[in-house]
Design a protein around this nucleic acid. Sequence first.
DNA 1: TGAACGGATGTAATATTATTACATTCTTTT
DNA 2: AAAAGAATGTAATAATATTACATCCGTTCA
Lengths: 234, 234
Amino acid sequence: MNMPRTPHPARSRNPAPATADGAPVSTGGVSAAQAADSYGFSEHTRGLLECAATLCARQGGRMTPQRRDVLGLILQADAPVGAYDLLERLRVSDRRPAPPTVYRALDFLLEHGLIHRIERLSAFVPCTHLSHEGEGDTHAHDFPASQPMQGGASACGHEHGACGVHAAQFLICRACGGVTEIADTPRILDMLRTVCREKAFTMQSASVEVEGLCATCAGRQGKADGVQGAGTEQ
Amino acid sequence: MNMPRTPHPARSRNPAPATADGAPVSTGGVSAAQAADSYGFSEHTRGLLECAATLCARQGGRMTPQRRDVLGLILQADAPVGAYDLLERLRVSDRRPAPPTVYRALDFLLEHGLIHRIERLSAFVPCTHLSHEGEGDTHAHDFPASQPMQGGASACGHEHGACGVHAAQFLICRACGGVTEIADTPRILDMLRTVCREKAFTMQSASVEVEGLCATCAGRQGKADGVQGAGTEQ
DNA sequence: TGAACGGATGTAATATTATTACATTCTTTT
DNA sequence: AAAAGAATGTAATAATATTACATCCGTTCA
Ligand SMILES: [Zn+2]
Ligand SMILES: [Zn+2]
Ligand SMILES: [Zn+2]
Ligand SMILES: [Zn+2]
C-alpha cells in the first residue's frame, strides 16, 4: 500500500551512526572544548556549518546553536533524515527537545535554502549548494544578500533566497535510500518555467522527485534478494 | 513552519459540497434505485466511473463498490481530497469505514493509474487520463492491457499501467487550492528520462509539483487580503 | 456439493508526522 | 534599564498512515 511508505532501509529507527564524511561519529565522549559543537561533527561538517552561518547571516538570519545542531546532523547523515530521527539524535545528555524545536529549526533551514524536504520521504537533506560553497569560494551560488538573484536560472538548476523560486530535483533510490540532488543543470527548471509561462501560472516553489534505482543498486538488482538494503550509496 | 502545511483553503474540514461537474450533490435523499451509487454522483461522474471500471478490468483489477465510491468522491470534488476527508464523506447512513478501508481503495486506484497523490498536500486527485477517456473513445491513452505501453512517452506526458513509469506533473495554487495536472506534453518527462539516463538511474516513478498562483488568483493578488480563498478555480 | 483458496473488507489498536497555544528566555534596540 | 522582537521550552493535540488479525465472499476444483 502506497509503496513509497515502506520503511526505507536507510531511514529505519536504528540510527546507525554512519557518516558521509568518513569521519568518526563519536556521539559519546565529547571533550569539553567541543561542548559547543555537541555532536562531534567532523571537520568537514564544521566547515560547512561555518559556511552556512555566513550565508544566512548575509540573508539576515541568525545561525543559533539549535539550528546549527540540526543542520549538522543532517549534513552528517548519509541519507535523508526524518524530523523525529533528528529529535532522537538531539537527545544527548541533558537536553530533551520536543517536536516544535526541531520543526522550527527545519523551517529556518528550509527558508534559508540550506536544506530541502523530500516530500515522498517526509525527510530532509542538505542542499548541495552548501557543499559546493565549501569547496571553493567564488561559486555560482555565492550571491550577495544585499542584491540577491532575481529569478534568473542559476548554474545549478535551483535557486535560493527570498526573491528567487526555491526549486530542486532529486533522484531517490528505493533500494539503498540514497538521494541525489540534480543540481548540475537548469534544464528541468527552465522547462518548468516555460510550462508555467504558457499556463500563466506564477511559480513560487517546485520540486521534482524521481524514485527508482541508482546505478549501484540497479546493477545489484538480480542478486540475492535478502541482501537488499545493505548497500551504501549517495 | 513548512509553508505548504498551512490549512489549505479548499481542503478545510468543512466539506463544502461543491462539485466540479455543475451537478447537484444531494448527499442526502438518495432514491432506492440509486442505492448502488450511494453518493448521488452526477451523470458525468457515473460515466467516468464506468470508464474506470472498464479500464481496470482490462488491467485485471476489480472495481468494487468500495473503490468505486472512493474514486467517485475524488472525481466529484473540486480540489484534492485528503484520506480523512474521504473517510468523513463515506460516513453516510449505516457505514462507518475505518482508515484502512480508504487507504486500501486509494492504493488500488493509484496502482491502476486512476488517481494521483499530491505529495505536498497529502491529498489525491483524479488522473486527467480518465476524463480524456470519457470524452472520446479512440484516445492516445487508450492502450490495451494485453499489450501495454513499453516505457515510451504518451501524448499526455505521463504513463500508466504495470509496465510504464507512473509519472505526473502538477500546478498547485496556494490561494484557491486548485490543482492542474500538466498532461498535454511529454516534454518534462522526456527531460527527466534524459537526466536519468545520464546518471544511470532507473526511473520507476516521478512527480513534479509546482506551487504558486494560478492565473485567476495571480490577477486577484493585490485586492482585499481577507477575500483570499473565496475564489473558485481549477 | 463443499472444502480450499485468494481477494477484499471490517475492526481495533497504534505508529508516524506535524501543529497549536502559551510561557519563558535571550538579544537587540531605544 | 526598559521595551521590543526573536528564539526556545513545554504540554497537549491534530493529522496522516500502518499493523495485525478476524471475517466475508466469490471462485476453483476434488
Ligand atoms: Zn539545493
Ligand atoms: Zn541505491
Ligand atoms: Zn495522470
Ligand atoms: Zn488559484
